[in-house]
Design a protein around this nucleic acid. Structure first.
Lengths: 236, 236
DNA sequence: CAGTGGTCTAGACCACCGA
DNA sequence: CGGTGGTCTAGACCACTGG
């Protein structure tokens, strides 16, 4: 099968995972100590340590210093939900990305915006709205507010040539982000811009990005439920 | 600040991340080689290797054997979306979980089900439907099909005492799962069971789990959009 | 070819846990 | 206290990349 033999640490990982998947070791059971595995496989402790450490990172086992390693109670069904630049995402699927810029303006922060950006009410904030299309079909409405302190020249950006996500990553290095995904009906203007019915369910992602010590941007991304979905795969 | 000094590999990681976040090293720029960092910090190569390897796993840098290490082009905004047992999730929030079992039955697979489970049309498949409540408020409709080959006694499980997720994890060790999240309107029966309006947008998660070589279960989970959201946080 | 990262060893010291 | 995992070293050989 594999002309190139697996690295030693992968063999150790495979062995441990096999015991778990076959039900030989059940959740809560102890996994052999590093010393035991070291002798069993005839490898150094560093190698065994790497194998088990990676399994711990993957959530397959739980380690407690001084106590030992046990099979994780609930193999959590988790996977990395990657939030990418919409342009890259579309191009990677081999499709054509186009965008219509609906609005670019400067506004004064109201109470809600001020709280989001952690600034005083009345502070200037940039605002843009656009629709992203994949092969001509609208799949995302992007309503974004940008902190001028993080990207002072945001209004000069040509959003038809560079996505705002990309522009911001270039000009305000990302240090932190938080998001939420929920379902909602579109507003009247969103429905119109997306070309969908007002009663069509949409995925709404709200995302706040932080650059350094400042809140750099807040975006509300609306996806028609029938045209877009998040998906993921999880192994182990 | 820190009474306990950071491990050496963490110091190396912190240094590299700082250079990136401060904009000293831009996306695409080369990161110093392991040998260079080794001399700069006066630590062994294994330690430097661990630091940079972890940054690569986190997506901060990209490594190519023989070529070198560069700052990742797009710091992907990604985070682990953990899909947990609904019971655990509710209890962890300090709330009370209750469930109403609407249906438990055996059905014959139609074409779609047969394809999902990779079995022949007409094969027996278990089916259950229930509503999960948090402090008495319905937050999830769970429509689930289970492969008898993976969990032959699923029908005997008391779903009011054990969630089906938990039961399946106990009886059919999880090896793989895939899911998708989209927005949709509930079916008439789902709306009724959840006690929501038929035109209320919902999050719909479809999840297929694999145990060993068999598809163990397929679930359709419907969350009222106004009562539930997925959220996550991402750093670095 | 020289430089890079990928893997591995045979030690070592430490902090922590449970008995 | 002995056993555990967390970290670290100073070497080493290899596969791969680029010029």
């Amino acid at each position: 099968m594999t002309p190139i033999p697996l690295p030693a640490y992968e063999q150790v990982k495979a062995f441990v995972k096999a015991q778990i998947n076959l039900g030989v070791w059940r959740p809560g059971d102890a996994v052999p100590s590093e010393a035991a595995l070291q002798h069993q496989f005839g490898v150094s402790r560093m190698t065994v340590n790497r194998a088990v450490k990676e399994l711990a990172v993957e959530g397959v086992v739980t380690r407690v210093q001084g106590s030992g390693t046990v099979v994780a109670q609930l193999h959590r069904i988790s996977s990395t939900l990657a939030v990418r630049d919409i342009h890259e995402e579309i191009v990677e699927r081999g499709h054509i990305h186009s965008t219509t810029v609906l609005l670019v303006e400067t506004v004064r922060a109201d109470a809600a915006l001020a709280q989001t950006f952690n600034v005083r009410v009345g502070t200037k904030v940039f605002h843009s709205a656009q629709v992203h299309c994949e092969d001509g079909v609208a799949i995302q409405f992007e309503d974004r507010y940008v902190n001028p302190a993080s990207a002072p020249h945001y209004l000069d950006a040509d959003l038809t040539q560079t996505t705002s996500t990309h522009y911001l990553l270039e000009h305000a290095p990302l240090t932190e982000a938080s998001y939420s995904i929920e379902a909602a009906l579109p507003t009247a203007s969103e429905a119109k811009a997306l070309g969908i019915n007002k009663s069509a369910a949409c995925l709404v992602m709200k995302r706040r990005t932080i650059s350094g010590t400042r809140v750099a941007s807040f975006a509300r991304l609306v996806y028609p439920g029938t045209r877009y979905s998040f998906s993921g795969n999880f192994q182990l």
